[in-house]
Design a protein around this nucleic acid. Sequence first.
DNA 1: AAGGGTTATTAAACCGGTTTAATGATCGAA
DNA 2: TTCGATCATTAAACCGGTTTAATAACCCTT
Lengths: 339, 339
Amino acid sequence: MATIDDVARKAGVSKGTVSSVFSKKRPISQQVTERVLEVAKELGYFPNHIARSLSIKKTMIAGLRIPLSSDGTMSAFDSQMINGVIKECSKQGYRVLLDTLPEQDDPTLFSQDPVDGIIMLNPRKNDTRIGRYNQMGIPLVLVGRPDPLDDSISYVDNNNTEAAYQVGDYLLRSGHKSVLFLNASSDMTVAYDRKNGLMEAFRHHGLPFSEEHVMHYNRKLHVSGTEYGYMSIMDTFEAMNYSAVITDTDRVALGVLRAARELGIEVPERLSVIALSNDATLAQEINPKLTSVELSADLLGAEAAKLLIEKMNDMSMNRQVIIHAKLVVRESCSTQNSS
Amino acid sequence: MATIDDVARKAGVSKGTVSSVFSKKRPISQQVTERVLEVAKELGYFPNHIARSLSIKKTMIAGLRIPLSSDGTMSAFDSQMINGVIKECSKQGYRVLLDTLPEQDDPTLFSQDPVDGIIMLNPRKNDTRIGRYNQMGIPLVLVGRPDPLDDSISYVDNNNTEAAYQVGDYLLRSGHKSVLFLNASSDMTVAYDRKNGLMEAFRHHGLPFSEEHVMHYNRKLHVSGTEYGYMSIMDTFEAMNYSAVITDTDRVALGVLRAARELGIEVPERLSVIALSNDATLAQEINPKLTSVELSADLLGAEAAKLLIEKMNDMSMNRQVIIHAKLVVRESCSTQNSS
DNA sequence: AAGGGTTATTAAACCGGTTTAATGATCGAA
DNA sequence: TTCGATCATTAAACCGGTTTAATAACCCTT
């Protein structure tokens, strides 16, 4: 590859001049510009992004840290989130660096990434990385609230507690007395928040809430979301007494529907299904159309990107954005059940 | 941020020594190593990835160029492909830079990316970028074959022609005489290859092939894949005479199924559906379970990553990988139709 | 005690850009 | 004609690492 020096030499000008021709930060006369561009073309010269980044201390790259499950696949939620991030970043001229490498805890090996800021998914409890990024002066935005809550950190999240309350309220109002909740993995804050919301709804309606009716997704037990839904119904429908199921994702709901078909349970007549949806288009295409809560993962991603870019421009800025998840009633819930 | 100089000064050693402590490329005595690490910790020093990249001329980043549709969303195929790329890259210590920015054709603005190599999706006909990357000496791997074919380029692709032939053969054997093909966008090589495969099957069975029965996805007409499927059936079922539909993706099949439900057409009794699937788990979860061709986008991605890493280590290396797409019979096709 | 062979460390050059401060050229006004 | 102002260009320093060639320190042998 030709360098800026090669161009400068051949065009008979200085490095600085060539630099200015390309960056346009300083006006260069018509003639000189033309000669430089011509030589550059001749030599096949393109500015080196890394050298430039080193100099201006900016890479125009946003880092996106996603913890992948052990089998290396990402969920529909992840995928839509990424989509949102990319969309917003592209719009503002940023590229996105995906990082799924397990974090090295050996600081000797820990090397700063070539990014101007970082969006981090599913922060852990008391996540030490948050402090580390702060110390390094790298702008950070979380997707999913920090635990414990901390409003000196920028983050975006759904109104999980409220959404779960809403779902519970809707089901109980419709006459359901007992509900199976196929919740997310128990180590996630969303799982905790949602359970609280649902409990609150039961309390509000003066009905007893059974912890046993809350399942948690478990990597070791379930090979996939659909399998989680399928197995949970197969295992519990006989033994437990419920007339409605709330599922963690649309995929889980697909598994529930398959189990219902095999057991000859009519949906929604004998079993109502509500999905906490991460795939807006899927819910309306399956039969029966799924009543669901739209989480808008893409919006979460886009907002996270906006927040990050804001923060890159002003480190002192931090903000929290709550994406309103709301119930969309379709066909998978009965409204006059009272089993 | 503290720099290597700060550490060197405070530890009373030279830059080079500090560098060696972190990179471990040269042995440094026990005592010196300890003092340097201690000072580094004290100062909160982490090696600067960009400076390091500039010096060693390697970033350990693979670029992934995906053309996003105008609404900025990616398809399930894209998403799975990315998944595969990430999985393989992570395994080998590479990170992935997603680039969806439209390519600047103004060479003044065109800046080399901070990547060691590039995986490019859906190359265009006579894609000028291929030559450009070659000229810049950047390792390149395509996902989707180059057009025209060129075996001096590394790429991965499905055996599209063959797969389409297989599908056609299966349907014609089953007694179908007329098939609607909801093909991909007409500017894609896959669309071309698949059509050829299908035509070949008709020829082989001595049946007439009607160009009118091949539709192409069109961004301007269809808001989504499902809508494409839905509308195509609604518009043509009465007028055209077909007993089977081949769809570009599972989502398109979902639209077809919805249209069938609304028109009271039984699947598979009166209409058979086969999806060229990009979402393995979805096909088996919907009702009826979709007979489909598994494209294994994740495998394509993983293979592309492998090829790229190979090529980064040896520029002269180039290889082509064909991922075998094969028909999986489930429930959505009748086998004794002859309408 | 001097010479030869290791080994550990350093100073300086280098990677390929940007930017600052200084220089040179050009022009209009006094 | 000369001075000052404006503008284009340049030389050199800088960004934060790696690496090479030279030096210094050490150990062992004769």
